[in-house]
Design a protein around this nucleic acid. Structure first.
Lengths: 340, 340
DNA sequence: GCAATCTGCTCAAACGCTTAAGCAAATTAT
DNA sequence: ATAATTTGCTTAAGCGTTTGAGCAGATTGC
């Protein structure tokens, strides 16, 4: 790789000091009373030599890397792309670069990514946390590293957070199904310690109770990740046949919805004629499903945007953060998978 | 943010010089004849203080950032996630971090990302290029920055490249359709200057000719990005009705396949009964389509893997590269969208 | 006409790390 | 007993920047 042009190269070429070049190129020419002619020459040769400042050296001096680390739970989730886009756009607008890490929903990998990023002197982190990442969050607080959690929050720890009100959305989803005539509403969620997913269950349970719906056997199924396919298959089969014979299924995530729908297809169940379907998130895969899937859509752009703003505020403040939690609205995208 | 522990902190604590600490922590204790006891103490306090080397400072000295820049054409393409995963894994195995940039298929953005990455002193680049990015590639060559193109190649420029043989796969796809009884085989591609896409057209045209198939009006449709939806709608409508009435459609990309399938659904065309379908790439969206879509799948893991290896070889060599082109195999994933 | 001020620049230190060179004390060789 | 070598460490320079301090020479004030 060819040597890059440095301040020194410019300085030598003109026979001036490195400092002068630095002042001029950083726009401090006036403040530092640099002669107009010299300033112009510096600008000219910098352009001629295609000078590009060495960010590494800059960072070393300034202790700021102008980089924010984004650690996502899984890069090929549907909503990750949207989040990444929004975050990159907002970061760029503020002169920051985003480096992306992937924890694959794994706590150990999350731990590792955090440390890799800290070593690379990111100025702050935006994190879609893995399960049981409380320790990691505590660590960031202790080290006073600016960070913002998105999507997943740990209620036991005060921190910045941008996300949605999962309880409320789940409650509304059940209400929507109820209004559209469903009375035997099943719910598919993961077996999880994640607060945001448990909130969805709480919303479902509360809504069911308030509508006065009672089921002998539970219509609430929790899928174990360790036996994912089998669990989903069993759940869908049981929910859609006697004695349960639900008339609606509410999927707690888009991944569950996809698996569930595949099983519904296999069982030749008509949607929405036999069973209404509603999903918490949107997946690209819904696009070609026989019937447009009614779902709630997270405001990904806003989440990303707010996350960056919150983070940069904290980075710039430099003092103890005033923890901020922001709950945004999910919007219903009505398809044709619920009864009229 | 709390100050990080530096070599100096460790040195001061023990009353030794910074150099000694550096030697020991870099495993040069033996070579540098450091006393066993002191060495142990250094190791201990480094651990006690949770010393983490400052990569920025390391980079400044070594002129190596141990970072590779990956610029993808679009982060939410189906195949991007697979590529990213493979590249990250292989990079990590070699002690490199990947920073990801998104060009959104835009030449200006690609240009910008390249420069951002160079300023951040990436040791090399892996690029899924945007259309007409020849100048950018020439620039990288001139600056002698190690880089590998993936997926998209510019035949007019010698460079490293990892991808697939698009001509051959397209040829085989047509052969497959022919073998499965289709005789009026349509092809949907983008209107493009991309070589890899034009190769697909060339493969289609050649196979059609060699099979002795002749169509009065062209069964080959090129979709303009500027009027994407309208063009696809028109193409599908015309191809599936008289006088053309094709019995198979070969989609040059997964995005085209998705749009095309949506239109086929709207027109209530049965697949494969009325029209057989085959797609070049896989999309998540195929998962819930009424019938599994027969498609070719790129060896994403291999592509990512080879790209990193090729790049690191060149980075380590440090001399003028021996340009390397690698064409990998795509594999057919037979669904049920073609006739038996 | 001499001090104070301004103008236009340079010097030097620092960021955290690496690494060649140097140096005193201890050990070995002769 | 003295020279040569080895041992165990320190010094210092440098990577490319930034930035406060300093310093001549020109200009102004009184």
């Amino acid at each position: 790789m060819k040597k890059n042009v440095s301040l020194k190269d410019i300085a030598n070429q003109l026979g001036v000091s490195v400092s002068l070049v630095s002042y001029v190129l950083n726009g401090h020419a006036k403040k530092m009373r640099v002669g107009d002619e010299v300033a112009q020459q510096i600008l000219d040769t910098a352009k001629k030599l295609h000078y590009q400042p060495n960010q590494i050296a800059k960072s070393l001096k300034s202790k700021k890397s102008q980089t924010i680390g984004l650690i996502v739970a899984e890069i090929n989730y549907g909503y990750t792309a949207g989040i990444v886009r929004a975050i990159e756009a907002e970061a760029k607008k503020n002169g920051y670069t985003v480096i992306i890490g992937n924890s694959h929903e794994d706590l150990a990998l999350l731990h590792e990514m955090i440390h890799v990023f800290i070593n690379r002197q990111v100025d702050g982190l935006i994190i879609v946390a893995a399960e049981q990442a409380e320790t990691e969050v505590q660590y960031l607080k202790k080290k006073e590293i600016p960070f913002v959690l998105i999507d997943r929050i740990f209620p036991s720890i005060e921190s910045n957070f941008i996300g949605i009100d999962n309880h409320r959305v789940a409650y509304e989803a059940v209400e929507y199904l109820y209004k559209h005539g469903s009375r035997k509403i099943a719910f598919l969620n993961y077996e999880t310690t994640f607060f945001h997913l448990k909130e969805r269950t709480r919303g479902y349970v509360q809504a069911i109770a308030e509508k006065g719906l009672k089921y002998k056997n539970s219509m609430l199924r929790e899928i174990r990740k360790s036996s994912y396919d089998a669990d989903v298959e069993k759940a869908i089969r049981e929910l859609t046949s006697p004695p349960l014979s639900c008339d609606a299924i509410f999927f707690a995530t888009d991944t569950l919805a996809i698996s569930g729908l595949k099983n519904l297809i296999n069982l030749k169940i008509k949607i929405p004629a036999d069973v209404a379907v509603i999903s918490f998130d949107f997946a690209e895969a819904f696009a070609l499903f026989a019937c447009p899937v009614t779902h709630y859509r997270q405001p990904l752009a806003e989440i990303g945007n707010s996350a960056v703003k919150t983070l940069l505020d904290e980075i710039k403040e430099g003092k103890k953060p005033k923890w901020k939690q922001l709950y945004l609205q999910s919007t219903l995208v009505a398809g044709k998978s619920c009864r009229e």
